[in-house]
Design a binder for these strands. Sequence first.
DNA 1: CTGAGGTGCATTTTATACACCAGATACGTT
DNA 2: AACGTATCTGGTGTATAAAATGCACCTCAG
Lengths: 145, 145
Amino acid sequence: MTLTPDDFESIQKAIVDVQANGRDIRMTFASYYDDEVDIGWEVDAAVDSFQMFSSRWTIEILAALYIAGDRRFNELRTLLRGISSRTLSDKLTTCQEHGLVERVVEEGPPIRVTYRLTSHGRTCGRLLGPLVAYMKIHKDLIESE
Amino acid sequence: MTLTPDDFESIQKAIVDVQANGRDIRMTFASYYDDEVDIGWEVDAAVDSFQMFSSRWTIEILAALYIAGDRRFNELRTLLRGISSRTLSDKLTTCQEHGLVERVVEEGPPIRVTYRLTSHGRTCGRLLGPLVAYMKIHKDLIESE
DNA sequence: CTGAGGTGCATTTTATACACCAGATACGTT
DNA sequence: AACGTATCTGGTGTATAAAATGCACCTCAG
């Protein structure tokens, strides 16, 4: 499948709209939820896609920026209790390379650096939302088992 | 917040039902999507929750089992192109400890070991669905930038 | 003698701890 | 007004610890 930027724009819009109107994304991607469909090759696609998130801290950074909004370096470091500044710096760089985050320099004085989700990053954050909500409630139970 | 197993059952059921009926989980967790609400502390909750997924391969394993269904050890190793058997073994163990996956021994002969998502794991998989779908479509564009 | 389901161990890759740095603002002293 | 010094921001450098890999190998069943 090859998509033009226009295709992408409208697909992304559709996804966001679907979420925004309280309906399930399945209306756009029916096959994903249809157990009858042979989706063998989609495992490859999923495994492939998730490698972007498959390292420590990437999802947390995404979630923190999505929930808390734009944040500066040291603010993020505080939110992500436990990350080293070396690692945060490295992760923010790879997030930029993956098109999830952009580095915004506010010309001063004082000069300030802010990290912001790209529209791609915001969509990912939004799609992670239900998982955050579920985990928040489920955590107690899992931990007490 | 402390939940009884019964609370949990009905909450989980509600989440799955909401998804299954094509509505957004926000109907259950309104505050998550409401930009006006101060959700500072929820960042903590999210960061906390995601640490379960925040290591290499965990999300891929979840996605593979969710999309492809129950799988045996070597089948998973094939699906997750590139994982070493040592790492797969370790990750499956921690997924079990987190209550995401169960190890099902089919008494033979022949004896076979199957890995299966728990109901918790399936819910997580389902909630990751929209992200899989989005990434699949978005990947071309990101990579060509 | 093969395939399934792993474990052991040495090496490489990732993340951490901790020190440090340059530039800017801030506070008090003289 | 100049002077020291002290702190905050946004990182980098380096050694060490933790996680993942490659590859050999094991047991058990067929």
